[in-house]
Design a protein around this nucleic acid. Structure first.
Lengths: 119, 119
DNA sequence: TCCTGACATAGACGAGCATCGATATTGACG
DNA sequence: CGTCAATATCGATGCTCGTCTATGTCAGGA
């Protein structure tokens, strides 16, 4: 169930919109952006994202991430899947291990959309 | 500003944190930021915010906002309350009308936190 | 080949949330 | 005072979401 070429991840549609404060969002635009923010709007996922992002080589093994929380392994797996599905995290399997990395331009676009900075 | 955190709105605690990608968020920081994003993570609230923000004098009357959606008046009122409670919207009552305005520095801080731009 | 360890999926349960209709509150005005 | 109009609050309802346990999948080593 990798990404289909027909469907853009939510994150890929964000760059199309001017900042929130520039002009009113259309209903359709809002419907596309909300899932992205919804993916971010959870304390566990926020920490996961920032943990991955601040890892030395911008890549983190799931095994490390599991240990950082007091939650079950399936729960962490679920959160990582959510972040991956909206396009905020990339996923790479090497042997038995899976590594996630942050799509920084996606975060930058989203930040610009909210903060009003030109991208 | 340290953490004797009394009753700051969520938005007022965001400026304390370095960008997501700089260093791992603490559990406590994540718990404070998540409600803010949760407030934004709804298509109706996104449109409300951008409607208010792009109004000519950065202020919008509830009566105008109601008409922009196909939702009941209590629902719009509820969404505005959510945005106000987290500190993204300011509220001013003049006569019978209520005007909401965007706290731009709040949005800017949040954008910087996500996008990684220094604030 | 079988076992073990890393990670994902499935299904269930409880809490939270978006929405509604009904009702309360508040201010203006006759 | 009484009424109307703008907005908020309340209580109910159905759906979404975060978490769990149990189980599946897949790669590597003895």
């Amino acid at each position: 169930m990798s990404k289909s070429s027909l469907e853009l991840t939510p994150v890929e549609t964000v760059a199309c919109c001017s900042p929130l404060t520039k002009e009113p969002l259309s209903g359709e635009q809002a419907e596309r952006i909300a899932p992205l923010l919804k993916a971010l709007a959870d304390p566990v996922r926020l920490r996961l994202l920032s943990l991955v992002a601040s890892h030395s080589d911008s890549e983190a093994c799931v095994c490390d991430l599991n240990d950082a929380f007091d939650l079950s392994q399936p729960t962490i797996s679920h959160h990582l899947k959510v972040l991956h599905e909206v396009g905020l995290l990339d996923r790479a399997k090497r042997g038995v291990w899976v590594y996630y990395s942050v799509r920084r331009e996606a975060l930058a676009d989203l930040g610009a959309l909210i903060g009003g900075v030109a991208s």
